[in-house]
Write a protein that binds this DNA or RNA. Structure first.
Lengths: 100, 100
DNA sequence: TTTACATATCTAGAATTATAGATATGTTTT
DNA sequence: AAAACATATCTATAATTCTAGATATGTAAA
């Protein structure tokens, strides 16, 4: 749980939005075809479409979010699905509450 | 209350430390001479000494923290004292709790 | 009213982050 | 096995942040 590293992730509007969108995938993304639920999160392509940024940029963003343990990737066939890591996200808020 | 702007402040170890130190000035800084309490916070010089960074850097940091409304400056003679803005700090944690 | 002092602002170079095109990797389909 | 597809990584440039020295401003002391 690294305040500085997580704050760096949150210091970008798009990355904050991605986290928010992932709270409610069904509301923010089209349904997946190969998988009829969002249990493992949302595929990179949908996230990219929603942001309008390039594929490599979004992949880089998701990688930094994964390094900070804010999201968890799961591979299904050729897709990678990302979902929130609620434990870490809530833990971060708690740490701020206590330490900040 | 801007998540991105405040996160930028928190994405630097020194700035996070300054906020933490200001929670308990009497424990983290020497007593002031012109003022015998810490009601208005801590003067820039003490903060600078504690960090070991240059005067201009600390002044810049404090300015960014003030812009984000995380700290409140008060001038006494030739000194400027900075204290935490608890309302905004707690408010930020609440916003994260709800929105993130 | 100079001088000294505390802090703020200006300026500039170094370091980091943002962003995307090109390419690589792994998977599925044909 | 080749082609198509989704994502990751590499490479490079633009933009931003970091940091400090120099300078300016405001206040107090001599």
């Amino acid at each position: 749980m690294n305040i500085v590293e997580i704050s760096k992730v949150l210091s970008n509007k798009t990355r904050v939005n991605i986290l928010k969108w992932l709270k409610n995938p069904a509301e923010n993304f089209p349904p997946h075809q190969d998988i009829d639920h969002f249990d493992d999160g949302v595929c990179v392509g949908y996230i990219q479409d929603k942001t309008g940024l390039s594929q490599s940029t979004i992949s880089t963003y998701l990688n930094s979010m994964q390094n900070a343990k804010l999201v968890i990737p799961t591979r299904h066939g050729k897709w990678t699905y990302y979902r929130r890591n609620e434990e870490v996200i809530q833990g971060y808020v708690k740490v701020l509450e206590n330490e900040l």
